[in-house]
Each structure stands twice: as structure tokens, then as C-alpha cells.
Design a protein around this nucleic acid. Sequence first.
DNA 1: TTGACTCCCTTCAAATACGGAAGCTAGCCT
DNA 2: AGGCTAGCTTCCGTATTTGAAGGGAGTCAA
Lengths: 158, 158
Amino acid sequence: MSRNDLASSACAVARSIEKVGDTWSLMLMREFFLGTRRFEALHRNTRISPHVLSGRLKAMCAEGIIEKRQYSEHPPRDEYLLTEKGRDLWPVVMALMTWGEKWLDGPEAVALRHKACLQEMRPTLVCPECGEPVTARDVAAHVTEEFAGERCTGSDKG
Amino acid sequence: MSRNDLASSACAVARSIEKVGDTWSLMLMREFFLGTRRFEALHRNTRISPHVLSGRLKAMCAEGIIEKRQYSEHPPRDEYLLTEKGRDLWPVVMALMTWGEKWLDGPEAVALRHKACLQEMRPTLVCPECGEPVTARDVAAHVTEEFAGERCTGSDKG
DNA sequence: TTGACTCCCTTCAAATACGGAAGCTAGCCT
DNA sequence: AGGCTAGCTTCCGTATTTGAAGGGAGTCAA
């Protein structure tokens, strides 16, 4: 199966992966959350080759994750800004950061401060119903009957 | 830059991306969290080609995200189980699921129940200091001075 | 003991994507 | 006029992925 076929999956995870589940899209999301907006800066900070960078930016614009905006008319200069859809990917980047800090050696180069309470912190996952922290072990996941056995075949049932 | 260079990045997000930031590793993580353990089932449910699947499973074993265990001696049959390191990737998959359900059309094929309170829910991110829900807008992120300007160059400063 | 079947992969050829360097356009600056 | 910057595009060789096929080790049923 090719990546593109994931778009029609019955599973939201697969559909998301099709949109942003690749190395360079994820690197770009990190960079956007750090505030980078311009082509050259994205290129420098991520080391993505201009060719691939150009392609990813176009795809992410088409997808509505970022939008291109001219910030100077003379000379004409563009920047890329996260849309609300794009900002909603923040938990993905946070999750990767938290995992990397726990399990992969290396420095913690980014500080996060909650604007409301002014504490430095790492966001954690909780159950919104009872407020308790949750991990994989605390939650039972199951494919609903309607979709049993068709993880990747949202449209083409057999 | 090639993907492998991300491993030495000063940024935990980049280091994580190098390990699990690709389509098929993420698809496999989803599948493991749904309880799939065997080569053939992983192949069927994700439609990853056997070649790539084999490679990813080896890499993930080497990385300590999953481990191979023989569940039958006659015939010799193996299964792949998440390690604690692997289970800790659950928030990444949850984040992708939540985003996909909100922003990408398609069904919600997976139910999640918090074992402690028995409610169906989607985990949410909160600030562990004050308990309030957090989004990208609520948190100020900045690269610590020590690492300013070297997002991807943890080891080779210039 | 033969033939069919399952599981867990491996091998191979063709298609695709990527990396790195170079180039190109538009405009500014001196 | 010459050089500089930003924001890309083009090119080409290499690396990765896909999809199909194959293979080995074992079970099972006749």
C-alpha cells in the first residue's frame, strides 16, 4: 500500500499519518511551533533541502495546516503561518518531545512555560471525565464493531 | 540532511522523529496499541509490504520499542510486544487520533474507555502544575540560550 | 507420505523520493 | 554596474519503497 491510500482509512490515526506522518512535515511542525516562519529560516533550522521544503510547504498549504502570507511588497516576501488546524497539531509535537526527553539521550533544549500559571512544565495527558492522568495501560481501546477488520479500508469494503 | 543526522540533534523532537517519525513506524504503533502482535496480522492490518515491515520491526526491536517473543515452539512462531519505551509512545498516537477526528473527514472507528472511571473519552493535555487544559496558545516555548541557533546540531557546533 | 496450507519472512526489479549543488528571479543597496 | 538577500526551481545521481514472487519450516488431513 502507498501512503496516499491512508487518506480513506476508517482510522483517524491513519488519516492523520497520511497528512503529517513523515519526517519533514513533523520537523516543520516543530519549527513552526518555535516561531519560524520564513523559507530560508526553515531551511537553515531543519536542514531540509529546498526542493523537499518547497514541496512540503505547498502540501501543507493545500491541506490548510499553514497559510502563506506576504509580509513585504517591496521586495515581495512571503512567510508561512500555522492555521488553527495546524496549531491543533501541537499535542503531537509535545508528545514526541516528552518521549524523546525521557527515552533518548540528549539535552533539553526547549523550555515551556504555561502562560496562565507561569510554571515551566511538560503537558501531560489526563482523562477529561475524571481528571486523572492516563497512560496506555489505563485505557481500553477497541475497534468498534462496524469497522472490525477494516483498519485501512474505509471505502473499499470486501 | 538525511534523517539519520537527526539522532544527534539538540532537540528532543528531532531525536524522536528520527526513531518513529515515519509513516510505517507510526502505523505500526497504532496497530500495536490496538493489540496486534504478529507479522501476518500487522501486514494485513497496515498493508505494509513484508519487506518494509520486516525492516521496521527489526529497527524497532533494536531501538527497544518492541521486543520479539516466541509464543510457540512447535511450530516456532514469534510475536512482537511493546516495551515500556514503546508504550510511552501512546500519547503520540492519541494526539494523531484526536487531530484526525477533529480535522479530517471520516468515521471514528476506535473507542477508548478509561478503565478507572469507565467513561468513554479522548485524553486531553493539561498543565501538570495547575491542572488546566493547555493548547499551543497557552504555552510559551523558547529554545534555551545554550542551544540557540543549533536546532539540529547537537554535537557538531560551528 | 503426499499435498495443501499457514506463518514468517527474504529476494528482486521497477518506480519513487530524496540530497546536494547549482541556477534563476525579483528587488534592494552602494 | 556589481553584489547581496530571499525565495524558490531544476537537475541528476543515489537511496528507499513498492509489489510481486519465492522459500523454509512446520502442521494437518487423507
